[in-house]
Computed example of a mutant assay.
Amino acid sequence: MRAALLLCFALLPAVACAQEDGDWIAYRDAYRQMIWFEKYGKPKQFLQNHFRLRPRDASVNMEGLRLTLNGKATQVSLALDALGRAVLPLSKAAYDDNAELRINRKPGQIKAGPWVSIVTRPDGVYPATDLRTACEQLLAYLRYSGEAGGKQCIGVQFIYMKSDTAQVRFHAKEGAATTLAAKEGPAFAGDAAQGFRVYVYRFAAWPEAGQIITGSTPLAIGALLE
């Protein structure tokens, strides 16, 4: 068993490893991945970083999914949003304690790791220039962390639960408003889970001057990279 765990740490840092009562992740490995964002020195005021759990395929049931931080003297349940995202505490005590992040799912069912997205606004008003800047900031960070090589920002998408009928509109500088079309699909590119309501805002399809106004706060805003 000890040899298997050592092999897991060597080959799959910050990825769930097997445990009898579910999967677990070494907190130190998750901490090292999350701290990249904290140490990133370029502009990131439009970005946020979460620790995210997501199913490896569509057959995995996410209902009742739980993430707990467990140490010798600590057991904390970390709240997950509808997209499987949690705010991971960056705790020196948990790091020194060699704590574990435990997932109540069978080994291999869940992917886990940092997830950067665009910050939502409580007033629901997003200047077009800010969205373009946010997309570029996210792309720059992904390149810094070794991802998204060769891709470009082409837009953003506003993600809602399927049952949420809030509208997303583009308001041109002169005042004309147009409702963006909604589609059903995954929250983010590459996700196995479907069934979210997604509004896609492609930069090339709209004037540079204007703003997006949302009827309610989206679950998340993701960048469209191609």
Rank of each mutant, 00 (worst) to 15 (best):
R2H: 09
A3F: 09
A4M: 15
L6Y: 02
L6E: 13
C8A: 09
C8I: 00
F9P: 06
P13C: 10
A14E: 04
A14L: 04
V15D: 12
Q19W: 14
D23A: 14
I25K: 08
A26T: 10
Y27F: 11
M34W: 05
G41K: 15
G41F: 07
P43Q: 00
K44A: 07
F46I: 10
F51A: 07
R54L: 13
P55F: 04
E63T: 10
L65S: 10
T68E: 15
L69H: 00
L69F: 02
K72F: 05
T74K: 12
L78G: 04
A82K: 08
L83K: 01
A86K: 04
L88N: 02
P89K: 12
A94Q: 10
A94R: 06
Y95A: 09
D96Y: 00
D96F: 03
L101S: 03
R102F: 09
I103V: 15
I103P: 01
N104Y: 11
R105A: 11
K106A: 13
P107H: 13
G108C: 07
I110Q: 08
A112S: 15
P114Q: 10
W115S: 13
T120P: 03
P122Y: 00
D123K: 12
D123P: 06
Y126E: 06
Y126F: 10
A128S: 13
T129F: 04
L131R: 06
R132Q: 13
A134M: 06
C135F: 02
Q137D: 05
S145Y: 04
S145I: 09
G146F: 01
G149K: 14
G150N: 04
C153W: 03
C153P: 06
C153M: 02
I154F: 05
V156C: 07
I159M: 02
I159L: 02
M161K: 14
T165K: 14
T165A: 14
A166S: 09
V168G: 01
E174Q: 15
T178F: 07
T178M: 12
T179R: 07
L180G: 02
A181M: 03
A181P: 01
K183S: 09
A187I: 08
F188T: 01
A192Q: 07
Q194L: 02
F196P: 03
V198I: 13
Y199C: 02
Y199I: 01
Y199D: 01
V200E: 01
F203Q: 10
A204N: 12
A205V: 11
W206M: 14
E208H: 09
E208Q: 14
Q211C: 05
I212K: 05
G215R: 06
P218E: 01
A223D: 04
L224K: 04
E226W: 00
